[in-house]
Amino acid sequence: MKKLFQSSSLVLMAACALAPVAAYAADNPIRGNIRVVIGSTSTGGDTYQAAAIITEALAKKIDTNIKVDAVGFSAGYQALERVPSGNTLMIFHDQAYLGYLYGQKGYEDPFAKWNIGPSFAINPGNGYLVSKNSPYKNMDEILNAAGNGKTVRVAIQPGGVSEIGYTAMKNAVRLAYPGQEDNLVALNTGSQSDKNQALFDGLADVINGSVQANEQYTRLPADDQKAMDFVWLTAKASTIGQANPNGMGETSRDQLMQYASGLGVNIPMDADSDFTFDKEFFFLYNKRMSPEAIKFLDNALAEVFADGEVQETLKKSFFIPNFRTSAEAQQHLKAKSDSYAKIINSLHK
């Protein structure tokens, strides 16, 4: 502890000497600039956007420079592991534990390996689509077709957020038609462009997509090869219900609600509950990060949310603001992870 104090005071001295522009909130236990690495390598994606919005608000609150670096999960984990001082933080989403549950290379159990930090936003856009001239009009038809021996191909990116809804579909077929779940076949593709292309080429019957990326396709006339329809949005109806009433593009919130889990579409998780999936963004901390720093960031973010401004910014970009302190987030996400682990394992033979 003493050593840590010494080195941090050394850092402080150096920082004061060399970077006089930075000023600090008096009680900030994290000295110096903060680097936030994210689990995605894209600066055009939702993780970067959510991280940019929250870190901007946080930086203002604690009067520190925060920079978001889209290094991807692998390099992000390495960077996080090296720096226990709180100068490097990570922002990621449910992929952190889903990657582990699906046995993807490079993922470890995040609950054992890291401290789970506060969660702050949900992207409610994850969903599934069919072509407009598809024989399937809704989820029931898809599940029944698979249950009755018809092969249904679903284009997903394997091993995470994109696959979890597919796993739930498979699980639903298993519950209603035991033994028939293998009629639902995954077509493993990558980017959204590849998934769309698989639908255009007739290689897939259903594709994973999102409200943000696919809404305009649902408004194309039916004779357009590119026209699609939503069949399911994995987010809870109550989550989508918090979005701006105008929804996305020309599709209103109420229209989107028709596809939401638990309202328009019911995919069973087990005998008594429905499957839902909210893609949540949260912080990950180094395991050795001090409790003071954790508490400090918890409080700072709580204040950011109490101010109420960040919620508006998030909503403007089709995120649902949703703040949980580290302890709450840890508990919530662990429970979520455990429930998904059950269905993933039940499909393993």
Binding site: T43, G44, Y48, Q49, M248, G249
Partner: peptide, 16 residues
């Protein structure tokens, strides 16, 4: 990366 600029401005890109 440009796509990020559109989303930051709340503009949706797509076939329409």
């Amino acid at each position: 990366v440009l796509i990020g600029a559109f989303t930051l401005q709340g503009l949706q890109v797509g076939p329409l």
